[in-house]
Write a protein that binds this DNA or RNA. Structure first.
Lengths: 352, 352
DNA sequence: CTGAAAGCGCTTACAG
DNA sequence: CTGAAAGCGCTTACAG
């Protein structure tokens, strides 16, 4: 008795009575050049023998492994959903992600990438000949030099949530402008004219904070009689409550506050409580991110919910499109994915 | 000007003035058969040229890709940490996980595997010649037939958190017996003699519930004058509060309850509150899992914390050890990872 | 201690 | 419309 040998292409070819090269071409979908009957015979033989292409071999031939490296930690539910979106979109195209990251859950918030280890990760991926790469923001920055290499090697890279001026990768981010405009419109429609924005962490690796504040200010100023004052926390965002107290205690107390993150919104809640201000009667508050706790705040926080599944799927699509599709050879770009304003109970009409 | 061609092994060999086969052997670590000087020259040349082995090619030669398929969704922080443990251990050995899953975060709790899609996933993994496979419990069950195939193909499979009697895979689970004994000992030491266990979901794919209850009962019964009564919720565990109320309202009200999960412990809290019983004065409660909310319950819940990082790392080690190491050819087994009893404020001495 | 040759399982010019 | 041959970049017997 023979051992149950994995069938080879030549077995399929023999069974279908064609040459190996004919079988190869037909099974890759190049049916046009062969007789209909031949194609049927080959397809049938492959199926009957249970033949599966050895992707390692076709990978070294074609330069494509149908595999994408993903450097994104499953840091919180947002990122897990981004990963999920990537995974799903790739699977549809019969691609698979190879996901790598550093550290563990407890050490991710800082995610100061250990550059040594990061380069090792990239190399591990490249050694397996991934067709493309998707990374999260701080990586895109840390490995800027390597991105140039990859670009030269024709390995497309997409960075998520970081609008980079890096000329070597595509990007996909939340459409901060659209989302933030919706917030501004909502507050203006409620009659608010003295509005504040609390921002934080406007660092090089986290461009969203700056973008949100900027777009929000612009949107508010579209309304001639509206004012927008912006307050920035310290770089690590640890003095949120103090800043909020100062802001709310000032003579020019705003009637509405937009926080670039739900975390800062929570600080505003705390400051408001300590000053005896009630939300939304005295003060409307809008956050951003719709973090787990937002819905159970008192009152439930109005906030902006991003679309991580869509972001991930779009990133995957960009890689695929660069590889074979419509994006091949096109200039690099940055896709913006809309977000949704979730109205809960932290916003109300401005007092006359 | 030449394009920046990726260096081949023959380039390294030429630079070091040896044959390709010599370079190959030396770079794989088979230094013994060559002169010290030769080895140094080759290593140096490889480094200087920036040569990296093409893992696709060596994969088809050696049958090893240094890649492990992982079918585990990042469902919650426990599983994310399991993934993290797997990832880290594999990376140490210069292996990489290819992680695949079905559905998205919102649909994972049910995770009724779509078997069609699951088989497609396994095939995608196998097409890329993963050296082994790690899966989560329900998959191990759903693909029992395929596991036999894989076993025959010498692809080691490790299933996590499911003590299977399946003869085709290794397993690693929490050491339910050790953990549960610690709970029993703690309650007995506090003087409790009338003790209850609330369990749920003792299904085929979730063997832990049954194991916990069983081991707990045994441990309590080691104490001659102690009694243990067990209550089971309905299969989907939705009647926890009712069952707990019944249990606590009965004449034989226990002074301590062990819940096989923090979720059931929360039900006990609710039932106790509604009956005017105070925890821990009237009733001690211990949970299992140390879910996010356990620490912020009132009073903070004493519970068992598993070691997901260690579980993941051990699973990865088992695969690696089967592949080359001490486990090669050994009979299949099930590793048990200890868990830790976290004492908080929900347990106190039994009333006299 | 070292190298020439065959081979892994496919794909791709190229020739008919 | 189809096939024989060369080649992808390594590893591995095998021969010296």
């Amino acid at each position: 008795m023979e051992p149950p040998r994995v069938p080879r292409l030549k077995d399929v070819a023999a069974a279908a009575n064609v040459s190996v090269s004919a079988a190869s071409k037909i099974l890759r979908g190049d049916q046009s050049r062969f007789g209909e009957d031949t194609c049927r015979r080959v397809a049938e033989a492959a199926k009957r023998l249970g033949w599966r292409r050895n992707l390692l071999v076709s990978g070294i031939q074609t330069g494509r492994t149908q595999t994408v490296g993903v450097m994104i930690p499953p840091y919180d539910s947002f990122w897990v959903n981004v990963l999920s979106g990537i995974h799903r979109r790739l699977a549809e195209a019969d691609y698979l992600p190879i996901t790598v990251w550093q550290g563990d859950l407890d050490h991710m918030p800082h995610f100061e990438a250990d550059e040594q280890e990061g380069v090792r990760q990239i190399n591990r991926l490249l050694d397996r000949r991934v067709d493309g790469l998707i990374m999260w923001p701080s990586f895109g920055l840390a490995y800027e030099d390597h991105l140039a290499d990859l670009h030269e090697k024709n390995v497309p890279v997409v960075v998520i949530d970081h609008s980079s001026d890096n000329p070597f990768c595509d990007a996909v981010t939340t459409n901060e402008t659209q989302a933030t405009k919706a917030v501004a419109k909502h507050l203006l429609d409620l009659g608010h004219r003295r509005i504040a924005c609390i921002s934080t962490r406007e660092s090089k690796s986290q461009t969203w904070a700056l973008e949100r504040r900027d777009a929000f200010e612009n949107a508010v100023h579209q309304q001639p009689d509206a004012q927008c004052m912006s307050w920035r926390l310290n770089p690590i965002g640890s003095n949120g409550v103090e800043v909020a107290r100062e802001l709310l205690g000032s003579e020019l107390r705003p009637s509405a506050v937009f926080a670039v993150t739900d975390h800062e919104a929570a600080c505003v809640y705390e400051a408001a409580a300590s000053l005896g201000l009630s939300i939304p009667a005295d003060l409307s508050v809008v956050g951003f991110a719709d973090l787990d706790f937002a819905v159970s705040m008192a009152p439930p926080l109005s906030t902006v919910r991003q679309r991580p599944l869509e972001i991930g799927a779009h990133a995957a699509s960009m890689v695929l499109d660069r590889l074979n599709g419509p994006l091949a050879g096109e200039p690099l770009g940055c896709a913006k994915i809309d977000a949704d304003l979730i109205l809960r109970e932290s916003t109300g009409p401005a007092r006359r």
